[in-house]
Write a protein that binds this DNA or RNA. Structure first.
Lengths: 240, 240
DNA sequence: AGGGACACGTGAACC
DNA sequence: TGGTTCACGTGTCCC
């Protein structure tokens, strides 16, 4: 059946008698169609046919455009074959949200040190079995001499298993990010939530004292006289 | 006009005479509709009406579902108000591609060192005016003594402006990522594409020779006797 | 007017 | 069979 709503027109157009069925959505029942069709046909049939035709063709093009984008989305989303349109879009929403999440998270993790000092210690992942946790500690501060060796000593004193270390600089500001676990050389993790919280705050405290050192002993400052915001700061001397 | 395709049914159902118009898409002309409607109405009008009604309601729900996802996508995508559906989807495609790009790029940048040695030097960004480029060089290899100081010497010898350095470890493998520009202390960048390519390959060559050092002089190896794949590798001694 | 965009009801196909 | 998905042509609104 190729026939659509305008069927029988060719034979009936001479008579000018065309009727159609409508399911009225408000009243919930089938009602009369308008008489407009007959009137228009009476006026200029050719015009109406041409308009109808171009209209439906335009609509088909529109559908093709939309569906083309839908199918490229389908290719972008893994294992989205045999998903219907709604499910596909739902999955796309999920993906976009998640990608945005990790993107902002990453940029927060890796990019420019801020002007304000900051110490952040958080749990990234947790092993449910032995209580081993993966931690991420970030320390953002002004550079000073011995900052890195102080941080190293701090890490060592915490007896954690350092997994990853990142250093980035902007001007005289420096940001250090450490990933570490609390299971050193195969040992267990924090047994209880309380122990974990105590550990977290002790890590924060340890890094805090590294930052406090410069205020307590100003001779540690790299720029004793005045805070310097120069961009020609030699990062290579800091990074090794 | 509330009327739809099934209009006039209520008054006409007693007569059983219903006609509809179809624009035949293949022939490109208006043709007769099938007589099925009349037959069915003759059989059991109530059934047909109920089926039609639930069908159109289901279809409406489907449309609502799709449009709901579309509008949440609209909220996720910046400045996508007043975009039509196709444009919105096109923008979503663009975003997803870009997010995936940076996501894989970032994870590639920041995560685990691979088992195979790798040297990669690429241009991240380019200043069209003075030809200054931002480069990213990554070196992935087995750790050995003096690796970091060798890399530092290499960076220094290239006379580049080091912007950022990252080091990550997995077992005895180590991955170093350097971001740097070729405009040292305000100097200009590479004038031509050829100069840039020469610079790129010289950087690659420089890092290569650092990696070759261990094979040429085995005494540099951290594990002279046999390649060791232990995970208790003390990364903290490497990272500072 | 005339073309674009949208929601609608419908026919067909698939479980 | 009912239920669900899709493409289609159409009515309507807006520029």
């Amino acid at each position: 059946m190729n026939c659509r709503n305008l069927g029988e027109f060719c034979e009936n157009e001479a008579k000018g008698v065309v009727q159609s069925l409508v399911l009225d959505s408000e009243k919930g029942e089938l009602v009369k169609a308008s008489g407009r069709v007959e009137k228009k046909i009476g006026k200029s049939e050719g015009k109406t046919i041409a308009a109808l035709k171009s209209h439906s063709e335009a609509e088909r093009r529109r559908r093709q455009r939309i569906n083309a984008h839908l199918s490229t989305l389908r290719n972008l989303v893994p294992s989205s074959d045999k998903m219907d349109k709604a499910a596909l879009l739902a999955e796309v929403v999920r993906q976009v949200k998640q990608l945005k999440e990790t993107a902002t998270h990453d940029s927060e993790r890796f990019f420019i040190p801020l002007d304000s000092d900051e110490i952040k210690v958080e749990i990234i992942a947790e092993n449910a079995i032995d209580g081993t946790c993966l931690f991420r500690a970030s320390v953002c501060c002004e550079y000073r001499t011995h900052l890195l060796s102080d941080l190293k000593q701090t890490i060592n004193s915490l007896h954690v298993n350092l997994v990853k270390s990142e250093i980035s600089t902007l001007g005289s500001r420096v940001k250090n990010v450490f990933l570490f676990t609390n299971s050193i050389h195969g040992g267990g993790g924090c047994a209880t939530i309380q122990a974990r919280d105590i550990f977290l705050s002790s890590v924060r405290q340890a890094f805090s004292s590294v930052l406090d050192k410069v205020s307590a002993f100003p001779e540690y400052s790299a720029y004793p006289n005045k805070r310097q915001r120069v961009s020609c700061f030699d990062s290579s001397s800091l990074l090794f």
